[in-house]
Lab assay of single mutants.
Amino acid sequence: SLEEAIRRAEEALRKGQTFEYAGIRVTTQEALEKFRKWAEKQK
């Protein structure tokens, strides 16, 4: 689910890792916010 993907992205960010979902790379807090906004639109 998208909620699960967001949780995994947050977890990866805390560990300093890269999270990738549907071709979207989350490597920074800013990218995480963009990913969250994108995920909201997918619902």
Rank of each mutant, 00 (worst) to 15 (best):
39 A>G: 05
40 E>L: 08
43 K>Q: 14
28 T>Y: 02
2 L>C: 06
29 Q>G: 08
21 Y>V: 05
9 A>N: 00
33 E>V: 08
30 E>H: 09
24 I>Q: 09
3 E>H: 09
37 K>Q: 14
4 E>T: 09
21 Y>S: 02
22 A>S: 09
14 R>W: 08
18 T>C: 04
25 R>S: 13
20 E>Q: 07
32 L>G: 00
17 Q>E: 15
3 E>T: 10
13 L>R: 02
42 Q>K: 10
30 E>S: 10
9 A>Q: 01
37 K>S: 11
5 A>L: 15
30 E>Q: 10
35 F>L: 10
39 A>W: 08
25 R>M: 14
35 F>A: 01
14 R>K: 14
25 R>E: 12
4 E>D: 13
9 A>L: 04
34 K>W: 15
9 A>F: 04
34 K>S: 12
12 A>G: 03
39 A>P: 00
5 A>G: 03
16 G>F: 05
6 I>N: 01
37 K>F: 09
14 R>F: 09
31 A>N: 10
16 G>D: 05
43 K>T: 13
40 E>C: 04
33 E>W: 04
4 E>H: 08
14 R>T: 11
29 Q>R: 11
12 A>D: 03
10 E>W: 05
6 I>R: 01
3 E>K: 09
30 E>N: 08
23 G>P: 01
3 E>C: 05
41 K>I: 13
8 R>A: 14
26 V>Y: 08
39 A>V: 15
6 I>H: 01
28 T>M: 03
5 A>P: 02
36 R>S: 05
27 T>R: 06
34 K>Y: 15
7 R>N: 09
12 A>M: 08
11 E>P: 00
27 T>V: 08
36 R>F: 08
31 A>T: 13
23 G>C: 02
36 R>G: 02
34 K>I: 13
7 R>P: 03
2 L>S: 02
28 T>L: 04
36 R>A: 06
34 K>L: 14
22 A>Y: 09
24 I>K: 04
1 S>L: 12
17 Q>Y: 11
8 R>N: 13
35 F>Y: 03
15 K>L: 14
27 T>E: 15
40 E>Y: 07
39 A>L: 11
34 K>Q: 14
5 A>Q: 10
22 A>Q: 13
28 T>I: 04
34 K>V: 13
4 E>N: 10
6 I>A: 03
42 Q>A: 08
39 A>H: 04
38 W>A: 02
31 A>W: 06
26 V>T: 00
15 K>I: 11
12 A>K: 04
2 L>F: 10
13 L>H: 03
23 G>V: 01
22 A>E: 12
40 E>W: 07
36 R>Y: 08
12 A>Y: 07
23 G>L: 02
40 E>I: 07
10 E>P: 00
12 A>W: 04
35 F>Q: 00
14 R>Q: 13
37 K>G: 09
20 E>Y: 09
2 L>Y: 10
16 G>R: 02
29 Q>S: 10
29 Q>E: 12
28 T>K: 02
37 K>D: 14
41 K>Y: 12
18 T>I: 15
38 W>P: 01
17 Q>G: 11
25 R>A: 11
1 S>I: 13
1 S>P: 12
31 A>Q: 15
29 Q>K: 10
11 E>C: 04
13 L>D: 00
20 E>L: 07
14 R>H: 09
32 L>N: 00
41 K>D: 15
16 G>T: 02
6 I>Q: 03
19 F>P: 01
35 F>M: 05
8 R>V: 07
14 R>V: 09
13 L>M: 07
28 T>P: 03
5 A>E: 07
11 E>L: 06
33 E>I: 09
3 E>P: 06
35 F>C: 02
25 R>I: 15
14 R>G: 11
26 V>M: 06
3 E>I: 10
16 G>K: 04
22 A>D: 10
24 I>G: 03
12 A>Q: 06
34 K>T: 11
39 A>Y: 08
28 T>Q: 03
43 K>F: 14
34 K>P: 02
43 K>A: 13
17 Q>T: 10
17 Q>S: 09
17 Q>H: 11
3 E>F: 08
1 S>T: 13
32 L>K: 00
24 I>S: 02
33 E>Q: 09
29 Q>Y: 15
19 F>K: 00
23 G>N: 07
4 E>Q: 10
25 R>L: 15
42 Q>P: 05
32 L>E: 00
26 V>A: 02
18 T>M: 12
24 I>P: 00
30 E>Y: 07
14 R>D: 10
11 E>R: 05
20 E>W: 08
19 F>V: 03
20 E>A: 05
32 L>D: 00
40 E>Q: 09
29 Q>I: 12
29 Q>V: 13
15 K>F: 10
31 A>H: 13
3 E>Q: 10
13 L>Q: 02
27 T>M: 09
5 A>W: 10
35 F>S: 00
10 E>T: 09
31 A>L: 08
11 E>N: 07
29 Q>L: 14
32 L>S: 00
28 T>C: 00
38 W>V: 02
13 L>F: 09
2 L>V: 08
14 R>N: 12
27 T>H: 11
39 A>M: 08
23 G>S: 05
33 E>M: 08
29 Q>P: 13
21 Y>P: 01
36 R>M: 12
11 E>A: 09
43 K>D: 10
15 K>H: 12
7 R>T: 09
21 Y>M: 05
34 K>E: 15
12 A>H: 06
9 A>I: 05
20 E>R: 04
8 R>P: 00
5 A>F: 10
13 L>N: 02
17 Q>N: 10
11 E>M: 07
10 E>K: 05
40 E>N: 08
31 A>I: 06
32 L>Q: 01
14 R>E: 12
31 A>R: 04
20 E>N: 06
8 R>E: 13
25 R>F: 14
5 A>I: 15
37 K>A: 15
41 K>M: 15
27 T>G: 11
4 E>M: 09
20 E>M: 08
39 A>E: 02
29 Q>F: 14
26 V>G: 02
22 A>G: 12
2 L>H: 05
2 L>D: 01
22 A>N: 13
13 L>W: 05
22 A>P: 02
42 Q>Y: 10
